[in-house]
């Protein structure tokens, strides 16, 4: 729908949500009847005119009741959004070609329950899932945007809406996320791991492949260890999680290099590197990344992976 405010007011009516979030107030909430609400209103008007014409007062009472219900619903729908705190949720890894999840944390701060809250955007008009919030509760609301190419992506206008209680009125609030979502390059399919992987690995600082077979023992789990390496049977008998360690895996480091991809096209290279990063992470193999414009020292774990994939995502367009 067209924006009801002139552009110079946009910053106030469409705030960008940063880390501190935004609390919905009178200025940011819009409200209009749905088509069904218009039909309902017209029907109530007809009833009022008809009952006045025939001077049937009980019918006037009923017609007035219907009109009042619409008005009450108007305020109730508005109050269903009023005072809600919207915070950005931690980003979810997303690759080019996938639908892009946008998460929001909703905080109820006015000690009254909220119902049927949904999120939509100009391209995706309805969410599949609506959430309810209890008084003082915090909830998570998710929305999927259409796929996007790699790189930073501004979500554009997002709309939190509710039709509670009657579905006759819709109240909504526009906002955007201050931080763009980083869309990682699309990884190559798993089956297409090039043979160069093993040999290139061999040229790394370590002498052995990433999946060394020599089991040397169990260690305590540390953040960054792949869940695949957890020795579940042994862990069950201990109070902590135990991880299988293989010869060489603790110390060996692999460099994933731009030149080693064996491809010439930029996007294809990025895709391949993306796949390598994922594989290395999956196998618990510490890895570093060397791109023409940036070098990331070896490491492992979600944060490291994000750093590497972000570097790939942000690689200048050719």
């Amino acid at each position: 729908m067209p924006h009801p405010w002139p552009p110079w007011k946009l910053s106030k009516t469409q705030p960008a949500i940063g880390e501190n979030g935004v609390r919905l107030n009178y200025r940011t909430i819009f409200i209009l009847p749905e088509p069904l609400g218009v039909v309902y209103g017209l029907m109530a008007m007809t009833m009022i005119v008809g009952s006045l014409n025939f001077a049937i007062n009980p019918a006037v009472v009923l017609a007035c009741l219907f009109t009042s219900i619409l008005l009450v619903a108007l305020t109730q729908t508005h109050r269903n959004l009023l005072g809600l705190m919207i915070l950005p949720a931690p980003p979810i890894p997303v690759f080019a070609g996938e639908r892009i999840p946008v998460g929001l944390v909703l905080k109820e701060m006015n000690r009254r329950p909220r119902f049927t809250l949904g999120l939509k955007s100009p391209t995706v008009p309805e969410t599949a899932r609506l959430i309810n919030l209890d008084a003082k509760q915090t909830g998570y609301l998710e929305h999927y945007l259409p796929p996007h190419r790699r790189g930073p992506m501004h979500t554009g206008r997002l709309t939190l809406y509710s039709r509670f209680p009657l579905g006759l009125i819709i109240a909504w609030s526009h906002f955007e996320l201050a931080k763009p979502i980083i869309v990682y390059p699309k990884p190559e399919p798993k089956t297409m791991i090039p043979p160069s992987w093993d040999t290139r690995q061999g040229q790394g600082e370590g002498a052995h492949g990433p999946a060394g077979d020599d089991f040397i023992g169990l260690e305590n789990w540390q953040p960054g260890d792949s869940p695949r390496k957890i020795h579940w049977k042994a862990s069950a008998q201990h109070s902590t999680l135990l991880v299988k360690r293989f010869e060489g895996t603790t110390s060996e480091k692999t460099w994933l290099r731009w030149e080693d991809t064996g491809l010439t096209e930029v996007e294809a290279r990025l895709s391949r590197l993306c796949r390598w990063v994922l594989n290395a992470e999956e196998q618990g193999q510490p890895y570093g990344l060397i791109l023409p414009n940036v070098t990331i020292p070896p490491g492992i774990g979600d944060a490291h992976r994000h750093r590497c994939l972000e570097a790939l995502a942000m690689f200048p367009q050719s």
């Binding site: 009472v61 009741l65 009042s68 219900i69």
Partner: peptide, 9 residues
């Protein structure tokens, strides 16, 4: 909703 609508009615 109904109770709140009654005074207005």
């Amino acid at each position: 909703t109904i109770l709140q609508a009654l005074p207005l009615t």
